[in-house]
């Protein structure tokens, strides 16, 4: 027993040592964000620079929150990300189910189509996308972002979901149908509950992608009250005569928190969700 414990402890030390360089690089920007965000304004440009501030100015966060209208941007980002995720799942789940369960003529061409959409990124299409949004009359509207984020996330969502759906035994919903359940009942009562981990992981991917998207939001949104978080933070840096670095860092840190929490919470499920990816 004791030797076994020792072995694991030894291994742990080795593992942490091996990971330490990359962990340093990962933690570094967070440390920069944190320590810059609590510095008094005049210390931000002190030379030579130091990590620790002379005093921790938590007030910076309150000032930043007001000066940057952070709550508006937060609400916009939440609205866009949740709506885009919802729509993506709404259309991707049935499609993934069809691809995982049925053989049909258009199947391989549909897969190809999805692969092509996967290859395109908003930056490459930005000129055309802008015209589409104008045509819809949705310029400066966060709803245009919802629609487009959903469209761009479909391919990946379907691909993830169908890989996972493959691993759910077919007999389960089939036996439900044999027992007289309707098609929908079989799906919602038997199949979907089994698929919840995969759906959660897919949802998270879509959410993160929407949460972090930059180029389109920059092109489409016009007025500050419609800005999403990345745009709001970027606007504190781009084309300004003075940059309030302590506010920028505070905003960036707070903006990263929701996604970071989501990750630590779903980290285990994420791996199992993707692990089925090899099944072709």
């Amino acid at each position: 027993m004791l030797t076994k414990m020792n072995k694991k402890t030894k291994r742990s030390i080795f593992c942490w040592l091996a990971l330490s360089p990359i962990i340093c690089v990962i933690v570094f920007p967070f440390a920069v964000m944190f320590f810059t965000s609590v510095k008094p304004r005049q210390e931000v440009f002190s030379f030579p620079p130091t990590w620790l501030p002379s005093q921790f100015v938590w007030q910076n966060y309150i000032d930043m929150w007001q000066a940057t209208k952070f709550s508006d941007a937060l609400i916009n980002s939440l609205y866009v990300s949740f709506s885009a995720t919802f729509i993506t799942l709404l259309v991707a789940i049935p499609a993934a189910y069809a691809l995982a369960r049925y053989h049909f003529a258009a199947k391989s061409s549909y897969r190809l189509f999805l692969l092509i959409t996967q290859m395109l990124s908003p930056i490459v299409l930005v000129i055309g996308l802008f015209r589409l949004i104008v045509w819809l009359g949705l310029i400066d509207s966060v709803n245009s972002l919802v629609l487009i984020y959903a469209g761009f996330n479909i391919a990946f969502a379907i691909w993830m979901l169908q890989n996972y759906f493959h691993t759910i035994p077919k007999d389960l919903e089939e036996s439900a149908w044999m027992e007289g359940a309707s098609f929908l009942q079989g799906l919602t009562k038997v199949f979907l509950p089994m698929a919840i981990p995969a759906i959660a992981v897919t949802a998270m991917f879509t959410f993160i992608n929407s949460w972090n998207e930059f180029v389109l939001a920059l092109t489409v949104l016009r007025t500050e009250e419609n800005y999403t978080l990345p745009i709001q933070v970027y606007s504190l840096v781009g084309g300004r005569y003075t940059i309030e670095w302590h506010h920028v860092m505070a905003a960036a840190l707070v903006a990263s928190l929701p996604a970071a929490i989501l990750f630590s919470w779903l980290q285990k499920k994420l791996v199992t969700g993707l692990s089925s990816g090899a099944v072709k």
Partner: peptide, 13 residues
């Protein structure tokens, strides 16, 4: 979780 963190901040940030 630490290794996932870079994913949590958007690229421009």
């Amino acid at each position: 979780t630490i290794l996932m963190l870079p994913w949590a901040i958007s690229l421009p940030m």
